[in-house]
Nucleic acid binder design. Structure first.
Lengths: 148, 148
DNA sequence: TAGCTCTTGCCAATCGATTGCAGCAACCAC
DNA sequence: GTGGTTGCTGCAATCGATTGGCAAGAGCTA
């Protein structure tokens, strides 16, 4: 994905912040840029490390506060993985994660892919599952072949 | 479930500990009793609070160390829920959890119930999912009816 | 520009979880 | 039993992740 479209996306998000009464700051811009650039999922610490290459004085607490603001506005989601780690990603890029325990690769899975699961839970258990991103752990295709 | 069968189960687990070279102690007995009594899932803090009613001096660190021992022996599983909390339960009672965000009720779901999901991931993505207990969040049947 | 208020950097506090250590207790051998 | 070895435990310190307080600084409006 070309760089300028990322920039556009960052600007769009900044505009949404401003529209909701927040201020346009360098710190927020930098944090959002990292989230957009990674495209997938990042930890708060990943963001801090990355941002501090350009803004060494930017504190982790600012990262957390920005993430909280973005979460309140529904711009990013926080996901707790099944291995205990916590990651963030853009809400409009909602997806499940297939995490390989051996090589660490993370494959994305569209939320819609588990539509059958939603229906099953609703019909059999009356349970309306939230479309919350899941972090599923196991063996990816290549590691599975390599181990067999 | 009658109390004496819980006692039996606690004794069985203690026997397994002893058989693997561990010592038979009151602390471990008490921690195991809580896990068995709850039948479902408990947090480390739940266990500590419960155990300390009988053994006020028993420390959380002992709870964690006991849980770690039980985990090494494959007697209990640790599960990270999608809301970030961590719970433990007996391995022979492995199951998914349907957690209601409104009333807090937790419904159990047999691991086998998601067999289709496993197959789907394997066939479509080549991903071999571990049968890891999931904590799914949403609305339970009664809260869903009440809100409609 | 003045001035209000939100943000931020810095730092301490918190929270869940873990670890080092010294004393105690379980188990084994006699 | 009794003594000795070694594992367990309580306590306090620690660690990583996250949050809160506060004063200085920066963004926005008039």
């Amino acid at each position: 994905m070309p760089e300028h479209s990322h920039r556009d996306q960052v600007d769009q998000i900044m505009d949404r912040l401003v529209a909701s009464g927040k201020r346009r700051t360098m710190s927020r811009q930098a944090v959002i840029k990292v989230i957009v650039d990674y495209h997938g999922h990042v930890s708060a610490d990943d963001i801090a490390t990355q941002v501090q290459k350009d803004f060494p004085s930017l504190d982790v607490s600012t990262v957390y506060r920005t993430l909280e603001t973005l979460r309140e506005l529904g711009i990013v989601d926080r996901v707790y993985f099944a291995d205990g780690s916590t990651v963030y990603h853009l809400s409009d890029h909602k997806h499940h994660h297939l995490c390989c325990e051996r090589c660490g690769a993370v494959q994305e899975l569209p939320i819609s892919a588990l539509g059958n699961l939603e229906r099953f839970l609703l019909e059999e258990y009356g349970f309306q599952n939230h479309q919350q991103p899941l972090g599923l752990f196991g063996l990816c295709a290549s590691c599975r072949q390599a181990s067999s």
